[in-house]
Design a binder for these strands. Structure first.
Lengths: 247, 247
DNA sequence: TTTCATGGTTGACATGGATCAAGCTAACGC
DNA sequence: GCGTTAGCTTGATCCATGTCAACCATGAAA
């Protein structure tokens, strides 16, 4: 049956493409620093790949934890909800970054992960990752680094929320995005925001109007060009200067 | 020489007391869940114990990382400094908690850890911890849980800084301290603050005057009794209610 | 093409917390 | 016991950001 043979070929092709060893994000992601042989062992572990449509949840707060997720493509936000409806966006994640580390602690997720555009993720069963990282020193160490980096990142956000004023926060936010896009081979100066002003505001501890005004102000000052979600950075140093001096 | 024999006895006694297997914090700390035999292997690893005087640094931002630290007794703060002098306190740590996880990511510390009272810590060489946790599954898993708990805690602080008003922040802070003191067998209703109003303020993203006013207000409302650093919680539910309703 | 809905911008005004300033308390060294 | 100092409290005032409201832009659905 030629039809089913074609189907099989397609499947095996897609399986090859899924593997970490063929993934162009491997230097940003969990496989960083692994040898070819080690990479193949990691491939065995990452069997599930899932598409998440824009607006859908990858997981919800309270759901049982069993895997962490590597973003293969797309864009996510994570948030925590208070009973009274207040939302805090705790982060925005892009390709090559890991989601779900919060779930290890209590064996259930403590935040929501929501796709901000159609995305694709690799599910990594956590028990198997622990088991493999008992065998592969490099993997173990790199995983620890990734968790630690998350802690350091969070401290940066605490700094931002605790001591910076509105425009400093937004400048820091834009510079951080720019730097992460650059690391992924995209333009450092021009990108589309995947999130709304309200989501940016929630992340930065500001109201959406304040975010909007700060964007307008940056545009007036010639630091950036904004058109809705399209951002062009015209003066990186201007933005950086904003953050360093007390105004 | 009887004198030196006494000295030796004292030393070996103190060594025994240092071991995780004899530590009354073991259920709160890294050894959680280990068998007796596993505990002894962990003991071998934790050779260094250090006293840190009030006001001294356990480590500084930028210092090379090689160990994490378990607090045996005392009280610490961690903070991040911006070039322009702004300080963000990123946490307060007490007995049984781990310090230094931030250093794993870049192999150098990213914050300062400062003793708020005379303290004692156990240094845990990180390379050896990784190596041992490759052999002891329970240790590995528990360590991952501790790191993940730190991430979850940080998300809680982000929520606090991003969406709560001054009095909610302080109420959350007091309830958190109370709960952690309770877990260590101290009174949940009465304790001494080890940090100044300014340090509380830095942690909560507020100025010291605002912290002071909020304390006074809580006292007027009958939620707590404050006398400088001495706190008595009189109405836990009052404090909790403060956090749940939008005022 | 028009309509509708969602998200963004801008203005006018309100306010929570910052800032500035004065005085108070408690602990510690002499 | 006394003076000094760091830390705390409280009051008066100010301002950055929140709130409320109107309007605009864009894209999807009809």
């Amino acid at each position: 049956m030629p039809q089913s043979r074609t189907l099989n070929q397609e499947i095996s092709l897609s399986v090859i493409k899924t593997a970490c060893s063929n993934c162009n994000l491997r230097e940003l992601c969990l496989p960083f620093g692994l040898s070819l042989e080690e990479l193949e062992r990691l491939d065995d572990l990452i069997s599930t790949r899932r598409r998440i449509k824009r607006g859908d949840h990858l997981y919800r707060a309270g759901a049982p934890f069993d895997s962490i997720y590597a973003i293969r493509s797309g864009f996510f936000k994570t948030d925590v909800l208070l009973e009274d409806g207040r939302e805090q966006v705790t982060g925005f994640q892009m390709a090559g970054e890991l989601l779900g580390l919060d779930g290890i602690s209590t064996e259930s997720h403590t935040c929501n992960a929501i796709a901000l555009e159609d995305s694709e993720i690799c599910a990594i069963p956590f028990a198997r990752l622990e088991s493999l990282s008992r065998e592969i020193h490099t993997l173990q160490h790199h995983f620890h680094k990734v968790m630690s980096r998350e802690i350091v990142r969070d401290h940066g956000v605490m700094m931002l929320l605790g001591t910076m004023r509105a425009e400093e926060r937004l400048a820091a936010f834009l510079l951080n995005l720019s730097q992460r896009f650059t690391a992924r081979g995209f333009s450092h100066a021009e990108f589309y925001l995947r999130m709304t002003r309200e989501e940016i505001g929630s992340y930065l501890g500001l109201k959406l109007e304040t975010v909007s005004r700060a964007f307008s102000r940056f545009q007036e000052e010639g630091y950036i060009a904004v058109q809705q979600k399209h951002i062009r950075i015209l003066d990186v140093n201007g933005l950086k200067a904003l953050m360093n001096h007390r105004v």
